[in-house]
Simulated assay, not measured.
Amino acid sequence: MTQDGTFPIRGNPVETAWLKGDVFAADCPTRLLLDRIGDKWSVLVLLLLGEEPYRFNELKRRIAGVSQKMLSQTLRMLERDGLVTRHVVATKPVSVSYAITPLGGELIDALRALMTWSEARIGTVLSAQRAFDAREGAAG
């Protein structure tokens, strides 16, 4: 354990890695994880996979506006982070489905709370934006 209460991971290629993160430290890898789970496509994919496993094209149909390339990149990064698993079924053609892992499942309640808050408060946020824009437009 270091003086700041963190535990360096031995053998990790990342120069500074912790078992316990500090998101306010500039070099903490926790920031990378927050970037990932804060990404709009990642949030949407995780929310859907929190309901049930999906095949790639089903995810693409459900998430309006996501490109095939972006969905593929998002799934690969979520898989790399251990939040999603990829299951290949040897059929003709090959069938691939994605499911949330137990680690990813730990995020679902927090993501659902954010989704619920966003859906409930969008009207208030849009009103605040209009008021701000009106003030700034009048001042500018």
Rank of each mutant, 00 (worst) to 15 (best):
G50V: 11
V94R: 15
V23E: 10
A128R: 03
D133K: 03
R55P: 07
L111D: 08
Y54A: 08
W117G: 03
R121Y: 04
R61L: 12
R86A: 02
K60L: 14
P102Q: 09
I108T: 13
R76D: 08
G82E: 09
S72Q: 11
P93F: 06
R80Y: 14
P8V: 02
Y54V: 11
T16K: 14
V96G: 03
T85D: 13
A110T: 14
R31F: 09
T85S: 11
G104L: 11
L44I: 00
L32F: 08
G11K: 11
F24A: 14
G65N: 09
T16V: 13
R76P: 00
L44G: 00
I9C: 01
A134P: 00
V14F: 11
E79D: 06
A90R: 14
L103A: 15
Q3W: 04
I9R: 14
D35P: 00
A26M: 03
A99F: 07
P53V: 10
L75S: 03
A120W: 00
Y98W: 11
D39P: 02
L83I: 05
T74N: 02
E58D: 15
K40V: 10
E106T: 10
M1V: 05
G11C: 12
K60Y: 01
V23G: 12
P93I: 10
R36C: 04
L71A: 04
R55M: 15
T116Q: 13
C28G: 00
V84T: 07
L59K: 04
K20L: 15
Q73M: 13
P8I: 03
V89I: 15
S72G: 09
G105C: 03
S67F: 01
H87W: 07
N12S: 12
F56D: 09
G65R: 10
T91K: 13
R112F: 01
E79H: 08
E119H: 05
W41K: 01
T124D: 14
R36F: 08
K60D: 02
W41F: 10
G104W: 11
L107S: 05
R61N: 07
L111N: 08
G65Q: 04
G104E: 05
T85A: 11
N57M: 12
R135A: 09
L46K: 12
G104P: 02
G50D: 09
E119I: 09
V66M: 06
E136M: 07
A139M: 12
P93H: 06
T30E: 13
D133S: 03
K20E: 13
R36Y: 02
D133T: 02
A120P: 00
I63W: 05
G5A: 04
M77G: 00
R10S: 11
